[in-house]
Design a protein around this nucleic acid. Structure first.
Length: 260
DNA sequence: ATGGCCTTGGTACAAGGA
């Protein structure tokens, strides 16, 4: 079984790349962020024609998430129950015995912005809800664009980014709070080459210089952890013509988690 | 070269992203 996440920065623009990526990598689940499409405009026909089921939840211009899966997803949840939010940022479903939670965590813009307390409140709401989800679904994966670089080694220039949004102690404490629920950052379950990132600014030749951040993550529960065989950031996809500014991240399991 | 983008809405350029 293979789970993946990708912030596509507009599905209207990136649909051909998403269809190509599905064909090439054959994931069992792909969570998308920043579809930027209202639900009536979501290209489900094209995705279904590629042999996938899909659930989606979007809005105009900003945000928007989708859950693409080979098996149909059940028990769909949109956004965080009990946490009022006008923005479309979460889609969750159960696929093949695994509870899959796709998240687009707010950016926060800057610590002076009112978007920053919105981000912190959002993270508190997410944690509260995920505590329940973990209790109800031992086989749980939380994947998406977290907009948090968990540690300095996830940042190309930690000094320049120190205290900046995506790297603040408050945000990193929230990330640790998610791990404290019994979740594991699958990328760090393995020895990894240094300087691996999942996002590079479009500006400043950042990708060519590998000036990036690792902000897209796949977390899994205790029960799934022993089944994780690999976590890979698909950097080559960031070299596509008309790329998203994010690379996909994918996890492969040694066994079908649904089998147990 | 201490800069260098991309997307949307809407039709000029502002705003948001990270």
């Amino acid at each position: 079984m293979k789970l993946a996440t990708w912030n596509v920065n507009s599905l209207a623009v990136r649909l051909p790349q998403v269809l190509g990526w599905l064909g090439a990598h054959q994931p069992d689940v792909l969570c998308l962020q920043e579809t930027k499409l209202t639900d009536d405009k979501f290209p489900h026909v094209e995705i279904e024609a590629a042999g996938y089921h899909v659930q989606w939840f979007g809005q105009k211009t900003y945000n928007g998430v989708a859950l693409i899966s080979k098996l149909p997803a059940t028990d769909i949840v949109r956004n965080i129950p009990g946490h009022d939010d006008p923005q479309a940022r979460v889609i969750a479903g159960t696929v093949g015995g695994v509870r899959v939670v796709g998240v687009y965590i707010p950016n926060g813009q800057s610590i002076e912005s009112e978007k920053f307390p919105y981000k912190l409140a959002w993270l508190a709401g997410l944690r509260r809800w995920l505590a329940q989800e973990c209790a109800e679904h031992p086989r749980l994966a939380v994947l998406g664009d977290y907009n948090i670089a968990p540690e300095d080694r996830d940042v190309h220039d930690p000094l320049a980014w120190a205290g900046q949004v995506l790297c603040t102690p408050d945000e990193r404490a929230h990330f640790q709070g998610l791990l404290a629920l019994g979740l594991h950052d699958t990328f760090r379950l393995f020895e990894q080459a240094p300087k691996q990132y999942s996002w590079w600014d479009y500006r400043m030749l950042a990708f060519r210089k590998n000036q990036g951040l690792r902000i897209d993550h796949i977390l899994v529960s205790d029960a799934l952890r022993p089944l994780v065989a690999a976590c890979v950031i698909d950097k080559p996809t960031r070299k596509n013509e008309r790329p998203s500014d994010h690379a996909p991240v994918m996890v492969t399991f040694t066994d079908e988690p649904a089998a147990g």
